[in-house]
Design a binder for these strands. Sequence first.
DNA 1: TTGTAGGCGTTATCAA
DNA 2: TTGATAACGCCTACAA
Lengths: 338, 338
Amino acid sequence: MKITIRQIAEKLNISIAAVSRALDGYPDISIETRQRVLETAREMGYVPNRAARQLRRQKTDSIGFILPSGSPGFSEAFFTEFLIGMGDEAPRHHLDLLVSTAGSSPEREKDLYRDWVRSQKVDGFVLNRIRLNDWRVGYLAENKIPFVALEHSLDGVEYPHIEVDTIAGMAALMKHLFQQGFRQIAFIGGPEDLKMQVERLSGYRQGLADCGLSFDPELVFDGDLSAEAGYQATRRLRWLPNPPDALVCVNDETAFGALHALHDLGLEIGREVAVAGFDGVAASAHTSPALTTLDIPIPEIAQTLVRMLSANLVAGIPAEKHPLITPRLLMRASTGAR
Amino acid sequence: MKITIRQIAEKLNISIAAVSRALDGYPDISIETRQRVLETAREMGYVPNRAARQLRRQKTDSIGFILPSGSPGFSEAFFTEFLIGMGDEAPRHHLDLLVSTAGSSPEREKDLYRDWVRSQKVDGFVLNRIRLNDWRVGYLAENKIPFVALEHSLDGVEYPHIEVDTIAGMAALMKHLFQQGFRQIAFIGGPEDLKMQVERLSGYRQGLADCGLSFDPELVFDGDLSAEAGYQATRRLRWLPNPPDALVCVNDETAFGALHALHDLGLEIGREVAVAGFDGVAASAHTSPALTTLDIPIPEIAQTLVRMLSANLVAGIPAEKHPLITPRLLMRASTGAR
DNA sequence: TTGTAGGCGTTATCAA
DNA sequence: TTGATAACGCCTACAA
C-alpha cells in the first residue's frame, strides 16, 4: 500500500494541505505541526508521488541526454565518461537523468527530441557533438526549452556552453610530433558537419604551418569517429606512395583503430609510425603502446554542463559564462615519448 | 503552448472522452470520429502528457536499473554492454529505462531502491551482480515489485532470471590451459558475497580437479572486479616463491589489469604466463595480446531480461523460463592459442 | 495557523 | 456511439 499525504493527514487529524505545506517547508505552519508531520512522514516511509508532483508543478525535475545519431553509441568511451559525469552531478541538483540513443537515423533523432519536448518528459537537455549548423539548437530555442552544450554551433543562437581550445591543443601536439622527428603527418577525421571535426582539422593545418610543413590533402581521411574507421583509414593510408609516419586522429577511438591496424601491419608504433588521439579517455593509458593524446576532462565537462543547466532551470536565465578548456598534451609511447 | 486532448476536443467539437478513446484505440467509437481525431492529433503534434497518464494509470511504463554498489561503475565494459542491450530493447516494449548508480555505499543503494519504489518511479527492475543473499530480492518481492535478474540468489524467492553455466565454461577453460602446458594456475577473484565469484571460483576448483591438479589456496586472490585490482593482485602473485604461470580472472576487467601488470614486468604473455578472463566484452579482442575469455553474450542477455520483465509487467505473472547460457571459450593469444 | 476547494491532463465509469 | 464526471496525488490561492 502506497503512502500519500492523505494518509498522513488522517493519522494526524489535520488537512492534507497542512501536511503538504509542512513537507515543503513553507513558513505559514506551526513549528509543532511541522515536526509531527515530518516525523510521521518518516515513520510511514512517505515519498511524494512523482507523477502527481510533476503534473501539478508542470515540471519533471529531469534532464535529458540523447546520444547523437551517427555516433557508434555507448561503446564509445567518450560517451560512457560523459555519462558518468552527468550521472554523478544530476542527483546533486535533485535531477533525474534520462538517456536514450538516436540510433543511426537523423530522423529518429528529431522524433525523439520532439517527443520528449511535447510529452514534457524532461525540463532541459544536454547536447554534445554539436554540428556546424545544428537543428537541435534552433528547435529547442524556439520551444523555449533550456539546454547547454559542449561546443557552440554557428546558428546564431546564444546558449550556455563549454568551449575547447582546440587550436592551442593541436599546436602543442603538432610541435611535439615535429620534435620527435615525424614529418609526414596524416589526419584521420570524422564527419564533416561536426564542429569538432572542423576545429580539429583546422588545428592540424595550423599546426603543420607552425612547424613549416606543407598541407597535403592526400593525407586527410574522413571516418566516423569509430575504431573501425580508424582501422580502415590506416590500412588505406599505408598504400600511399609516400605513406605517413604519423597519424593524428580526431578522437581516441579512431586512434585505437589505427593502433590495431599498425599492429596487424607489423609496424613499430612510436618509432616507425606515431599515433595520437584526442579526448584522453581512460583507456588511452592502457593501450600498447600507451596513446599520446590531447586530454580534456570529459567527466568534469559533463558535470559542469549539468551544473550550468541546473542553474538555468532554477534561475530561468541562462548562465553567462562560457568556460574554455585547454586540452592537456599527454605525451606517451605511441609518439615515441620516453 | 502544449497540446492537450482538450484542445483537440474543442477543435472537433466533441468531448475529451471521445478523443481519449479514439487515441487509445478503444473499439466503442465510430470509425469516422477516430479518423478525424487521429488526423488532427497528428496535425497539432499532440503527444500525451506523461505525468498525467502515469498518475491516472498508476504505472510509469519505465523500468529501472541501479548499478550495484561496490562496482567500479560504468567504466566497466560489462555495464556499458549490459546497458546497450537494455537500451536497445526497452523502447521496443514502450518502456523507458531509468539508470542510476549506487556509488560505493550499500546504504545508498538501499535508499535508492526504496525511493524509486515508494515514489513509483518505475514499474520494475533489472538486477545483476546478484549476491548470495541479496536483500534486493527480498525487498522487491515483499513490495510486489516485478523484477528479473542475471543469476539467481539463495534467498528462497523465485523470480525470472537468466542462469550462466559457469561450471561447464570453466571446465573448458581449465582444460585448454592444461593442454597449453600451464600447470601453476592462479585465480584472481572478486567480492566473496557475489554469486558470480562463488560460482566462478568453484568452477576453477572443479576444473583443477578435472585436470588432476591440486588446489592451492595461496594461488587465490580477491579483488573487486576492477582492472586496478587485477593489476595489484598480479604484482603480488609474482612475489610468490613459486609464481603462477597462468592467471584465471573472475572477469575481463580484472584480466585487463593483469595484462597490464605482466607488460610492466616484462613477461611474455601467452608463453611465460597465460591470462584468461570471463565475460567476453568487446575490448577483450583488442588487447595485446588478445585475451582468451569465456564469452557470454552480454547485450543479448540484457535484452532478454528486459523482454522477460516486460512480459511480466504486461501479464502480471512472472515468466516461467529460466534460460541457461553456456559460455563460449574464445581461445586467443593471451593463453598461447594462435 | 489551518482548512476548503479547484485543477494539472488523463483515463475509466456510468448514463444517455 | 457519445458525453459528463469523478478520480489519480499533489500544490496553492483563498477563505476561515
